[in-house]
Every structure is written in C-alpha cells, then in structure tokens.
Simulated scan of single mutants.
Amino acid sequence: MVLYKKWCDATKEKDKRKRYWTYVEKDGGRDEIRDDLAETMRSHYDRLERIADDVQRLGYKVAAEILRTQLPQTDKGRSGDLGEILATELVEEEIGLRVPVRRLRYKDGRNMAMRGDDFIGAGYGGDDSKLWLLKGEAKSNKVLGKATVTSARKVLNRDNGRCTPDSLAFVANRLLESNDDGDVQLGRDLRDEVGLKTLRADRIDHMLFTISGNGPHASLKGDLEGAGTNRDQYVVNVHIEDHQDFIKEMYQKAEDLGDD
C-alpha cells in the first residue's frame, strides 16, 4: 500500500551511500491512512483472506475474537510490533526491496518479541541482477535516546554486518513452502547464502528504523556519521507526537472488524 506519501511529510538527506530520512505526520494525514493502516496491520498477523473467511463463516464478532488472540495486548508488545510493521512498509514503499515474510504471523506468543533480525529485505539488483539484502533493526519509543540507538547499531553490526543465519534461514524456508516460482527461487538463493556466505558487504544494506514521540534524537545523525561506508546505510525516524495514544488507537482499529 502507499502509506508514507499520504501520511507524512518527508525530509531526505543523502551523502554517498548514507541516507537520513525523517517523517512527520501531515495535517490530516492520519485520517487519510487510518483504515488502510489497520488493514495492513492485520495482514502482518494473518492472511486477509483467512480473516474474511472467518467473517463469512462465523460472523464479525467471532472473527474479531480469533484475530485478537494473535495481536499483542501489552503496551510494550504493541509498540515493538508496530515498529516492525511500519519499517517493513517503508522498505517496500521507498526502497523497492521486498520483505517477503510477515514474520509476526509466526510468533509463539502474542506478547513475546521474536528473536533475530527485526526485518530482512530481499531482492535482486545491481548490473548483474544478483541477490541483494537489507538487514533492519526497528525501535519504537515514547522517548528515543542514545542508548537505544547505540544498542540497535550493535545489533546491525553483529555477524560481521550479515543477516543472522537463523533469521535468513527462517525467511528462506518460508519462501520454499510457497507455490510461487519466484518465491521458491528467492528462497533457494537465501538458503544458499546461509551456507556459502558469498554475498559482499556492499550488497547487504543496513536500516536503523525508529518511531518516537520526541522526534529524531541527535544521536541518530551521530550514529549515521559513524556507520560504515561499504554498504547503503539508512537511518530513519518517524515522529509521532502522541506516540502511545497512536499505538493504542491503531490496535483498537485493527481489532475492530465492523459488524456489517
């Protein structure tokens, strides 16, 4: 879906392979995307066609209860999940790579955070149209500070800046279960990369994605300045002034399937 162009005003700075993007809600922007974002959130937890089938068979009230069992109910869980959802949508809308697996569908507890890389973008690029990856870390905070930014960068740099093998294998194996030939081919290439580790650093981009109530903390620019120059680096902040109220509002909207 087109989310950010309708929702936010963006400021984008670029210095060679380093990009610093900030987003602020437009006047009336939230009203423009509220319904679509709620549906997108549902799609990260379950297939929309399954939800529609539940509604057809069981009615809206029961279908909503089934969906609710998959959505986090704690403030921390909702904040973390929404950060990953918004990061995923940004990658696909603004960068053009796919985040091919909606990993929140595979949580073993709705209030638990999943281990591994927060999101992995994948596709084919360059002059040779070979595999290209993006390793991402998402943070959602009422008040964003330096400690959170430093921690996120540490995670991006681990495993020599590569996607962690277990995270990459998880994505690969889900794609190999698909009936789509393109998904299967991408899954094979990702699975090969888990074992061969032949992808150069300049084909594994990094994104540090943040959503916060206090806007872009100064540490974000400092982090980008200190980041390596051997890959594309994206540092992103989405400023939502009423951060916690926004999260509560959107999960209430996502849980509400209507009654007609």
Results as ranks from 00 to 15, higher is better:
G109K: 15
A113D: 10
A113M: 13
M114A: 12
R115Y: 14
G116D: 04
D118C: 04
F119T: 01
G121K: 08
A122S: 05
G123M: 05
Y124I: 02
Y124Q: 00
G125C: 06
G125E: 04
G126L: 06
D127K: 09
K130D: 04
L131N: 03
L133W: 02
E137S: 07
K139E: 00
S140K: 01
N141Q: 12
K142H: 12
V143R: 07
L144W: 00
G145D: 08
K146E: 07
T148P: 00
V149C: 13
V149R: 01
V149N: 02
R153N: 03
V155M: 08
V155I: 11
V155E: 03
L156R: 00
N157Q: 11
R158K: 09
R158L: 05
R162A: 03
R162H: 07
P165M: 06
S167A: 14
A169F: 12
F170Y: 11
F170D: 03
V171T: 12
A172V: 11
N173W: 07
L176P: 05
E177K: 15
N179S: 12
D181I: 13
D181V: 12
G182K: 15
G182Q: 15
V184W: 07
V184T: 09
V184D: 03
V184H: 12
L186S: 07
L186Q: 05
L186T: 06
G187C: 09
R188I: 13
D192T: 11
D192N: 13
G195P: 08
G195N: 15
K197Q: 11
R200T: 13
D205W: 09
D205K: 10
D205S: 15
L208E: 02
I211W: 01
S212I: 01
S212T: 09
S212N: 06
P216E: 07
P216K: 04
A218V: 13
A218G: 13
L220F: 10
G222E: 09
G222D: 12
D223T: 06
D223K: 09
L224R: 15
E225Y: 15
A227C: 14
A227D: 04
G228F: 14
G228P: 09
T229E: 13
R231I: 02
R231A: 06
Q233S: 04
Y234R: 01
Y234W: 14
V236I: 14
N237K: 12
N237I: 06
N237L: 08
I240N: 01
I240Q: 01
E241Y: 10
Q244K: 14
D245I: 03
D245F: 12
F246G: 00
I247A: 03
